[in-house]
Amino acid sequence: MPGSIRRYGTEMVHRTEQSERIIEALAEGEAIRGRSLWEDAKRRFFRNNAAIGALICLGLVVLFTVVGPLFSQWSIEEIDWARMGNIAGEGHPSIESGHYFGLDGLGRDLYARTIQATRTSLIVGVIGAFVAVVIGTLYGAFAGFVGGWVDNVMMRIVDVLISIPYMFIIILLMVMFERSFFMLFVGIGIVSWLDMSRIVRGQTLSLKNREFVEAATTAGVGRFTIILRHIVPNLLGIVVVYATLLVPLMILVESFISFLGLGVQEPNTSLGALISEGAGTVIYGTPWQIACPIFFFLVTIISLFFVGDGLRDALDPKDR
C-alpha cells in the first residue's frame, strides 16, 4: 500500500539514532536472563529434600555397582569350597574371609553376586523403560498428531492390548525364545509402552490444538519444524517424568520373573532371583542371604519412586 511505504521511508531517516539506542537496551537485556520452565523445574526439584536425598541414595547404589567389583575378592561363580560345608556357621558376612555379604546357598560370594544382581536390575530397568518410552512416545505422538481415523484405530489397538495380562505373555516369550537378556528387554519393553503411548497421545492432542501451534502455522512454520520446535519440547517434561517412573516398574517386572526362576539364567543373577534363593534358605539360619538383596532392592525402588515423584512435582504442567 502506498501509505505504508511512505511511512516506512520516513522511518528510515530515524533509523540510525534509534537503532543505537535499541542496541544499547539490548545489551542491557542480554544481561537479564529469563527463567525458562526447565530452570523453574530444576529449582523446584532441588528444593525438594526427599527427592534430593533419594537421588543421592540412587547415586550411591550406582556407584556401588561400578566401584564395588574392585574390592571383590571372589567372582560370581567361584565356590568357596573351604566354607561351603558349613554355610550357616562360617558363611556369614565378614571382612576377614573376604565375603563382605557372606555366602549364598551354594557357597558363592554374595557380595559379588549382589553387585551383579543390582547391576542387572538397574540395566533391565533403564533399558526396558527406554524401549517402552521410545515406542510409546513415537506411537502416541504419531496417533495424536495425525488424528482422525488413524488415531482411532491405533488407540483401539492399545485398548485391546492393555486388557491382556501382559506378564503371562512375557513369560511365554521367555520360555519360547530361550531366557536371554535380550528377550527379557524386548519382552518387558514391548508390553510396557501402552500407558506411555496413551499419555503422550493425550498430551499431543491437546498441544496440537493449542493456540501457539496455530500461531506458528500462520507464521509460515512448516509442519516438521512445528513438531520439533513447538510440540516436542512441550512433550519432553511429561516424557521425562513417566520414563523415571517406568524404571522402578520395569525392575519390579524383571524381579518378579526372576523370582519365579524364569528370568536371567545362572550363573547370572538379578535381585529377584537372589531374593527367591534367600527366601528358600532362610530356614537354615542364613538371614543375610535374603537381607542383602532385599536391602538393595528396597533402596533402589524407593529412591526411584521418590525421584520420579519429585520430577513430577517439578515438571507436571498441572501445577501451573
Binding site: 493456540e211 500462520t218 520446535r229 512441550n234
Partner: peptide, 30 residues
C-alpha cells in the same frame, strides 16, 4: 507465501505463546 500478510491475535495470551520459548524468540518466529 500468503500467510506473511495474514496474521492472528488470540484470546488467551498465555496459551498463544509457546511456554518454552523466550518472548523474543516467539516474536522473531515469523
Amino acid at each position: 507465501k500468503e500467510r506473511r500478510n495474514l496474521q492472528i491475535v488470540f484470546q488467551d495470551p498465555l496459551a498463544s505463546l509457546n511456554p518454552r520459548m523466550t518472548i523474543s524468540a516467539s516474536i522473531a518466529e515469523p
